[in-house]
Design a binder for these strands. Structure first.
Lengths: 176, 176
DNA sequence: ATAATTAAATACCAGTAGGTACGAAAATTG
DNA sequence: CAATTTTCGTACCTACTGGTATTTAATTAT
């Protein structure tokens, strides 16, 4: 996970991973079946350990404004995201992934959009979100903007600049 | 250019290009010096033939609203951008490029932001743009949003969905 | 027509990718 | 302790990468 996170997952070879982990190549294949299985396992672990923070933010019961502020903070300033996000890195190079990893990426993507949709619907019911746009559109929009911010961070862009871009993008969500 | 455009530039090998162009490998090396030289040449040609459309839109003397609408149309619906954009594809995988191509990518990126900045400054002087944000911030924002839209199209997303995302993103620009 | 020169393609190089056959070591069982 | 089974790593495989040495073909000069 560390190796995939630090750079581009597609640029990290099985050989390099074995060397980093001081594990023999057949041992790795016995454990994960191949590159596809390894990446899928890494992605699952990453979602569990890191990306869950995003789902967590949505379930804190914050105001809409507070939720968006927390998302902006996490994606563009938090040190944990200095090297970007394993999920969005994999999604950006989806065509290079094996079938299992690709399926996982798709289902995580769908789950993220769905989580935002649920949040937005509740937010609208509570009168906090006054938008006339359909919730699915805004949910998809938010995921894409988070992805853009995390991609920019992975590219080494200045966090302050990433933050200003993301804050601007999320300012289209009308708060009550 | 066709090969780089159709997929991911980093996934197209010199061998494949030679086969497609029915050109021997030494001939290609005599002409371009190597992969880096070829990519730089392709990028230059692409900017000249395709990406110039964006700079052209900015110099048509349209209203701010009309300009943004034209940009949205071009990036998210125009059939020429069905496979995405060679420039943004290369920029997304910048770490994989040779030094010459990478320098070109950087300078084209800077030129694009500068062009938007000039446009916005003029637009503000004309009273069409009423934003209080600094022009450089909005210029950078617009380039990133165009890049996001073109990346989504390269990934095969539904143009209508790309359009709705981009239109939403550009709606933060305050029109008089 | 033949010799000298220029052009271009075939065939090859080292390096690395993902993946595995097979022999050695270690643990388990009788 | 001996025999068997299971675990594990060295060494190797094929495919493909960017790049080039060497040979073949075309051209020019005599």
């Amino acid at each position: 996970m560390t190796a995939y996170w630090a750079g581009d997952p597609a640029d990290v070879s099985i050989n390099a991973i074995c060397a980093l982990a001081t594990v023999s190549k057949p041992a790795l294949y016995r454990e994960f079946g191949g590159e596809d299985g390894l990446m899928r396992a890494v992605l699952d672990r990453y979602v569990d350990q890191v990306l869950s923070e995003i789902f967590d933010i949505l379930s804190r019961g914050l105001t809409l404004d507070g939720t968006l502020a927390a998302l902006i903070q996490f994606a563009s300033v938090d040190a944990r995201m200095d090297a970007g996000c394993v999920f969005f890195k994999m999604r950006a190079g989806k065509h290079r992934l094996g079938p299992m990893t690709r399926d996982r990426v798709d289902s995580i993507d769908a789950a993220a959009v769905a989580a935002f949709e649920v949040y937005l619907t509740a937010s609208r019911a509570g009168g906090e979100w006054t938008g006339d746009q359909p919730a699915p559109v805004i949910a998809r929009y938010l995921v894409e903007q988070l992805g853009l911010a995390l991609t920019q961070r992975a590219a080494g862009e200045d966090p302050a600049q990433v933050q200003s871009t993301l804050a601007l993008a999320l300012s289209v969500v009308p708060r009550a």
